[in-house]
Design a protein around this nucleic acid. Sequence first.
DNA 1: CAGTGGCCCTGAGCGC
DNA 2: TGCGCTCAGGGCCACT
Length: 276
Amino acid sequence: MPELPEVEVTRRSFADAIAGARVQGVRLGKPLRWPLGVAEQVMLGREVGAVTRRGKYLWLPLHGGGASGGGLLLHLGMSGSLAFQTRPAEPGPHDHFDLRTSQGLLRLNDPRRFGAVVWSESLEQGPAAKLLAGLGLEPFDPRFDGPHLKVGLSGRRVAIKQALLAGDIVVGAGNIYACEALFLAGIDPRAQAGRLSGPRCARLAAAVRQVLGAAVEAGGTTLRDFKDAHGVAGSFQMQAQVYGREGESCRVCQTPIRRIVQGQRSTFFCPTCQKR
DNA sequence: CAGTGGCCCTGAGCGC
DNA sequence: TGCGCTCAGGGCCACT
């Protein structure tokens, strides 16, 4: 479900509300992708700091407790969402992590359980460091531009769509936004990554930033169940040009949108507007 | 080292 | 109504 925009929208929706809260307890449901890796006792009484995001991960620093550092690294996987409630409901069958605090309950709901909540001593060490190590630049980092993309893609024989999705050059463009960015840039998703010209790399870098930025502003994409931490749905799906539109006509040239499979993921594109 | 595919799970939708 | 199949917004890891 959540790509960078959904994760960012989620972050913004509860960061202020939880900042400064004291941890009062933890509840675990079924196992997520990895074990939490810390005893509840370690977190009790700690103060929640400023929630940050790196790629599709959220970092929830937990200060104090004598031992100083530490925090929780969260990932929403394919079907995860966070809710922050001041009047907590009973946990449902897919509520697999609760952080009870003095200012409300942060709850992870994740039917497929590809998501994760992992304790780490800091972002720079422990499990967090390892998980974030291979990530590319943030799309809104000024260093992410055409030349950076060109260098990252050089020598790669995979299709540009798969190279974007890999996240080691630029993070955050998942299956929806990779398709949308390639449409916006007029690039065929099957084009060989390492063969993209400088100008096309520049166009693609701009398109990635534009699509992700627009999606954040629209509150993310709600295909079926994405909601922010206060239960608000996104609306970017309304402006999707290609994703999920197989057989429908291109909004620019009326050619039917095609769906193909790349690396076991669906790709949607306009065979007329997007060129190799 | 780049590239490929399996796998971790549950639920929805569809054809029969 | 029920069954079996396919597909779904991610990404780690083993293997070639």
